[in-house]
């Protein structure tokens, strides 16, 4: 049974005429990796900050573990929340270990865990060097280390892979999966959709302050039913046989090349098509390209734009 750990209830944030977040409703469950995605200015960071109690919503309320984030009882909840802000900046003159001690003290964390956290982040050697000399990637790792102080139950990570190299990014996501297995709930925002689509359980897609949709990548695929692509390699002599075999699929787009075929079709046609392709002689390789998170995102955003245009006309 999934239990809700964060409940966003009808939350809006207005700055004068600007609606940064519009009547957002959202439930995040314990132990999932949840991601907010959207363009710059979509309202992700505003929603993030409201969830942490850094900004007061204009309307609505946010509960974390049943406690209002703007209420008095939230302090106790905060001790078990880790936060990595976007473009985190530390105090240049403090060393890595001093930074963790300072934040750890405020969090009421066990300071004996600091060296092992630095070690986990590959910063143990740099522990006694001032942060001034850290690279962007090292600062990001330090940011992650401080977020992990006090054994958090919930982690808020705003653009966490900024400044990390590809190996660092892979390590980071591996680490997230480990945390998830330990029952930590992780909320992250990212621009890099290709990176997160394999990592997250559910996504909330935001545009201009609205949450357009919430669900797993598979849910979103189903909802949008975007076309998928099948890339086929074949013996050029099998081309006519294949063309014949696929003649029934009138709704699919078939694009024959020299020794290749690109099929664009709907999800419903995928299995029948694959059955034929797999049994046709001369087909040497089949690759399926499901619509990526980026395709889904763009699909939703353009669909939103269309429906907005329609409602504007009405």
């Amino acid at each position: 049974m999934k239990s809700a750990i964060i409940e966003v209830k009808g939350v809006s944030k207005r700055y004068g005429e600007i609606h940064a977040v519009n009547a957002a409703d959202l439930v995040i469950y314990k132990g999932e990796i949840f991601s907010l995605i959207g363009h710059n200015g979509a309202g992700k960071s505003t929603l993030f900050k409201m969830m942490l109690g850094l900004l007061q919503p204009t309307n609505g309320e946010i509960l974390i573990r049943g406690k209002n984030v703007n209420g008095r009882a939230f302090r106790e909840v905060k001790r078990r929340i880790g936060y990595l802000p976007e473009n985190v900046v530390f105090y240049d003159h403090l060393t890595g270990i001093e930074t963790l001690h300072f934040i750890g003290k405020l969090k009421g964390a066990d300071l004996k865990t600091c060296p092992s956290l630095l070690d986990k982040m590959g910063l143990l050697k740099a522990a006694r060097r001032p942060v001034r000399g850290y690279s962007k990637g090292m600062r990001q790792r330090l940011g992650f280390a401080q977020a992990l102080l006090g054994e958090p139950e919930i982690l808020f990570l705003d653009e966490p892979t900024t400044g990390l190299d590809p190996a660092g990014i892979r390590e980071f996501y591996q680490f997230l999966q480990e945390l998830k297995e330990q029952g930590v709930t992780i909320i992250l925002s990212s621009h890099n959709l290709a990176q997160i689509q394999e990592q997250v359980d559910r996504i909330a897609l935001m545009k201009m302050g609205d949450i357009l949709t919430v669900g797993s990548v598979a849910d979103l695929r189903q909802q949008l039913d975007l076309p998928l692509h099948i890339q086929v390699r074949l013996d050029p002599r099998a081309k006519d046989t294949l063309r014949q075999a696929l003649s029934g699929f009138t709704e699919c787009e078939l694009d024959f090349g020299e020794g290749s075929l690109m099929v664009t079709c709907t999800t419903k046609q995928k299995m029948p098509l694959l059955t034929i392709l797999a049994t046709t002689e001369g087909v040497t390789d089949i690759q399926i390209q499901e619509p990526s998170l980026e395709d889904l995102f763009l699909g939703y955003v353009s669909r939103g734009a269309t429906s907005q245009a329609v409602s504007a006309l009405n």
Binding site: R75, K78, Y83, P85, N87
Partner: peptide, 14 residues
Amino acid sequence: ERGSLDLLLALPIT
């Protein structure tokens, strides 16, 4: 301006 205020205020401090 440094960007550390949000980090501080997200900690259990008023």
